[in-house]
Nucleic acid binder design. Structure first.
Length: 271
DNA sequence: ATGCGGACCTGTTAGC
DNA sequence: TGCTAACAGGTCCGCA
């Protein structure tokens, strides 16, 4: 479900109710997520003040003086702000209860999400240590992308979806940014010249920024922490449009599969 | 070192 | 209408 814009939208939604507040209780109902929820997590978090809610790649980082908790939404996770007395429903796997009575509730039908402890040096956590630059950071440039692809035969779409290359680019926005950059998704990463890579880096940045502004993309069931859908779906140019007309040239949008993920592209506009 | 397929799950949709 | 298969926004891991 969530890519970077949806995670960022979630972060912005939950930050106001968490930042500066003390965790009175962490209620874990289901520990079998992508990785088991650590047994000492409740103990580590109870009584701690969340001083900051940050995002790294698609991880939400809840920072306290005792250490950092990491939340990942996986494919189907969401975090909602609910009332203390609202009854948990199916797939509501944990609650973060803060002073004042607000509850941030995590729901994830597929359980590909996670809740982990990253201690006092989260950047050194194995899941974060190898991540590439944030797409919104100054380190993410066309030149960087070009250098990272040199000598590589891997398809450019899989290259930009590799979190070690750049963090947080998922399937929807990989498809969209490649279309906007006019680059064929199956082109080898090492066979794209610097100017086109610069265009691609710019489009990745732009499409993610636009999607954040729209509150993310709701394909079927994504909702922000305030229960509102994301409105970026209307702006999608290729994702999910197989067989429809390219909005740029009128040819049919094609569908293929790369690395078990759906790829959409226009063979006229993308080379 | 790189690349590929499988694995982890449930819910919804497409196809027969 | 009902059953089954395929597919879905992620990403790690093990093997070739």
């Amino acid at each position: 479900m969530p890519e970077l814009p949806e995670v960022e939208t979630t972060r912005r939604g939950i930050a106001p109710v968490l930042e500066g507040h003390r965790i009175t209780e962490l209620i874990v109902r289901e520990r079998r997520l992508r990785w088991p929820v650590p047994i000492d997590l409740e103990e580590n978090l109870r009584g701690q003040v969340i001083h900051h809610v940050e995002r790294r790649a698609k991880y939400l980082l809840l920072k306290t003086a005792n250490g950092t908790a990491m939340v990942h939404l996986g494919m189907s996770g969401s975090m909602r702000i609910v009332d203390k007395y609202s009854a948990p429903e199916v797939h509501d796997h944990f609650d973060i209860v803060v002073d004042g009575g607000d509850v941030v509730r995590f729901n994830d039908p597929r359980r590909f999400g996670s809740l982990l402890w990253a201690g006092l040096t989260p950047a050194e956590h194995p899941l974060l240590a190898e991540l590439g630059p944030e797409p919104f950071s100054n380190d993410f440039t066309g030149k960087y992308l070009w250098q990272s692809g040199r000598g590589r035969k891997v398809a450019i779409k899989q290259h930009v979806m590799n979190s070690k290359i750049v963090a947080g680019v998922g399937n929807i926005y990989a498809n969209e940014s490649l279309f906007r950059a006019g680059i064929h998704p199956k082109r080898a990463a090492g066979r794209i010249a610097l100017p086109r890579m610069t265009k691609l880096a710019g489009e990745i940045h732009a499409v993610l920024a636009e999607a954040v502004r729209q509150g993310g993309t709701t394909l079927r069931d994504y909702r922000g922490s305030d229960d509102k859908p994301g409105y970026f779906r209307q702006k999608l140019l290729v994702y999910g449009r197989a067989g429809e007309a390219c909005k740029q040239c009128g040819d049919l949008i094609r569908h293929t599969v790369q690395g078990q993920r759906a790829t959409y592209y226009c063979s006229t506009c993308q080379r």
